[in-house]
Amino acid sequence: SDFTIRIGDRTLHLKNVSEEILKILEELLRRGIDFEELRKIVEELIK
């Protein structure tokens, strides 16, 4: 499924993301992860 994360004025667009990855990202966001850290993790996950 497609997913968009907005943190402040920044946006991260994800396409064809599995439910498992979404759950991980949601947990990281709940813990207050930094946007740049989140972006790096996402890039690793979707390689």
Rank of each mutant, 00 (worst) to 15 (best):
S1N: 14
S1V: 14
S1R: 11
S1I: 14
S1W: 07
S1H: 14
S1E: 15
D2G: 01
D2F: 00
D2T: 00
D2Y: 00
D2I: 00
D2A: 00
D2M: 00
D2P: 00
D2L: 00
D2V: 00
F3W: 03
F3H: 09
F3L: 15
F3I: 15
F3M: 15
F3A: 09
T4E: 12
T4V: 14
T4A: 04
T4S: 04
T4L: 08
T4R: 03
I5C: 02
I5Q: 01
I5P: 00
I5D: 00
I5G: 00
I5F: 01
I5V: 09
R6H: 15
R6M: 08
R6T: 15
I7F: 07
I7Y: 03
I7G: 00
I7Q: 02
I7T: 01
I7M: 06
G8Y: 01
G8K: 03
G8A: 03
G8Q: 03
G8L: 02
G8D: 03
G8S: 02
G8N: 05
G8C: 02
D9Q: 03
D9N: 06
D9G: 05
D9L: 02
D9W: 00
D9I: 01
D9S: 03
D9H: 04
D9T: 05
R10F: 15
R10N: 15
R10V: 15
R10Y: 15
R10H: 14
R10S: 13
R10I: 14
R10K: 14
R10C: 06
T11W: 02
T11R: 05
T11D: 10
T11H: 15
T11L: 05
T11Y: 04
T11K: 05
L12H: 03
L12N: 00
L12I: 15
L12D: 00
L12A: 01
L12C: 02
L12P: 00
H13P: 03
H13Q: 10
H13M: 05
H13D: 04
L14D: 00
L14R: 00
L14T: 01
L14W: 02
L14H: 00
K15G: 06
K15E: 10
K15F: 06
K15A: 12
K15T: 13
K15W: 04
N16R: 02
N16M: 06
N16C: 04
N16F: 06
N16D: 10
N16V: 04
N16S: 07
N16E: 09
N16I: 05
V17L: 05
V17Y: 01
V17E: 01
V17D: 03
S18W: 01
S18I: 02
S18V: 04
S18E: 05
S18F: 02
E19P: 15
E19G: 12
E19S: 09
E19I: 12
E19F: 10
E19N: 13
E19L: 10
E20A: 13
E20V: 08
E20N: 09
E20I: 06
I21L: 11
I21C: 04
I21P: 02
I21H: 15
I21N: 13
I21T: 13
I21D: 10
I21F: 13
I21Q: 15
L22H: 13
L22V: 15
L22S: 10
L22R: 11
L22W: 12
K23Y: 07
K23D: 14
K23E: 08
K23L: 12
I24N: 08
I24P: 06
I24K: 13
I24G: 08
I24V: 14
I24S: 11
L25Q: 00
L25A: 06
L25D: 00
L25K: 00
L25G: 01
E26Y: 10
E26P: 05
E26G: 07
E26T: 10
E26A: 08
E26I: 09
E26D: 11
E27W: 06
E27P: 07
E27D: 13
E27S: 09
E27V: 09
L28I: 09
L28A: 07
L28C: 03
L28T: 07
L29I: 14
L29P: 03
L29R: 03
L29N: 04
L29S: 05
L29C: 05
L29T: 08
R30D: 06
R30Q: 13
R30T: 15
R30F: 09
R30A: 14
R30K: 11
R31G: 13
R31D: 12
R31W: 05
R31M: 10
R31A: 12
R31Y: 06
G32N: 14
G32I: 07
G32K: 08
G32V: 07
G32M: 06
G32W: 04
G32C: 14
G32F: 10
I33R: 04
I33E: 06
I33Q: 06
I33D: 09
I33C: 03
D34R: 07
D34G: 15
D34V: 10
D34E: 11
D34K: 12
D34P: 11
D34N: 12
D34M: 09
D34H: 06
F35T: 06
F35K: 03
F35Q: 04
F35H: 05
F35Y: 12
E36S: 06
E36M: 05
E36P: 04
E36G: 06
E36H: 08
E36C: 05
E36I: 06
E36D: 15
E36T: 09
E36A: 08
E37V: 07
E37S: 14
E37A: 14
E37W: 04
E37G: 08
E37K: 09
E37I: 08
L38D: 02
L38K: 02
L38Q: 02
L38N: 03
L38H: 02
L38R: 01
R39W: 10
R39G: 11
R39T: 13
R39P: 07
R39D: 06
R39H: 12
K40F: 13
K40G: 09
K40N: 13
K40S: 11
K40V: 12
K40R: 15
K40C: 07
I41G: 04
I41Q: 12
I41K: 08
I41T: 13
I41Y: 08
I41N: 09
I41H: 09
I41E: 07
I41M: 11
I41W: 10
I41A: 08
I41C: 10
V42K: 00
V42N: 01
V42T: 07
V42L: 10
V42W: 04
E43F: 10
E43W: 09
E43T: 09
E44R: 12
E44H: 11
L45I: 11
L45T: 07
L45P: 03
L45V: 09
L45S: 06
I46W: 08
I46R: 08
I46F: 15
I46Y: 11
K47G: 12
K47L: 11
K47A: 14
K47T: 15
K47M: 14
K47S: 12
K47C: 05
K47Y: 09
